[in-house]
Amino acid sequence: MGNYAIETVGLNFNFGNQAIVKDLSLQVPKGSIYGFLGPNGAGKTTTIKILLNLLKSPADQVFIFGKEINHNRIATLKRVGALVEQPAIYGHLTGKENLINRCLLLGIKRNKADEMLALVGLTEAANKKSTKYSLGMKQRLGIALALVSDPELLLLDEPTNGLDPNGIIEVRNLMIDLATKHNKTILVSSHLLAEIERTATHVGIINKGRLLFQGTINELHLLSKPMLEIEVNKISDAKAFLVQSGYEILEITDKKITVPFTSPQDSGALNTLLIQNGFTVSSLYLQKKDLENLFLDITKNN
């Protein structure tokens, strides 16, 4: 238990009769960037709210840094920074005033506000009313607010929502920076796998309140087995021949045969074998199911 920043044990949560989170067992290792993935309405935001004790979890199901959350609410929240849904910003205050207000609430010196503005690149807009901020600036201010207390654990709910490509890259780099240089644990939710793939070290995939996959990013990649697509003439003969030669056929269409990919050498040997036996191979193609499709498969089948 000691190695997890977040651990939930068979967490269940209902709104009335509707079960939002079912038997969820998250394990977020310290120092990881944990991509929390799922389509809209999967229960991501609800889970994050539970992790912040905004929604009360059943006893002994949620542990932050090994401590049960309901009994250690204040102590736990001191170690957590969060950006939930839209960044919570007071529109009538400037960006700097928003940060100062948070400093007041946390009992931190005011000059921390300037430091945070610099960190997220808002120094120039410090004295501008935050209603006049662009969406990307608001998002960055939201992240700055989450970082004010220098928390060990950051919960970011779709932090790149509505950002332009530049903004997305900035947030991504900031997350990597925080995890590698500042040793923070980050749980970042998203409905876009491509987004998570670039930064996350660990991934959890949730759909309809259930955790469908949890593991390192490499484990996720392993799930998507590479395949070799062979375009060959006399397709049914070729199939019979390959089966006879001990190959496993994954899929066959009227033009292509798909077999598992093992190594480039094996692919070459397979090609030679077919040609030597009188087949014409017009293409050999290494097909890797991308994570996006994998994600869709995982969420669709359940």
């Binding site: 709210k49 007071y90 529109g91």
Partner: peptide
């Protein structure tokens, strides 16, 4: 207006 209730209650206070 600013949807800040939840942030307010997520502070260690």
């Amino acid at each position: 207006k600013n949807d800040t209730w939840k942030t307010l209650f997520a502070q260690p206070l």
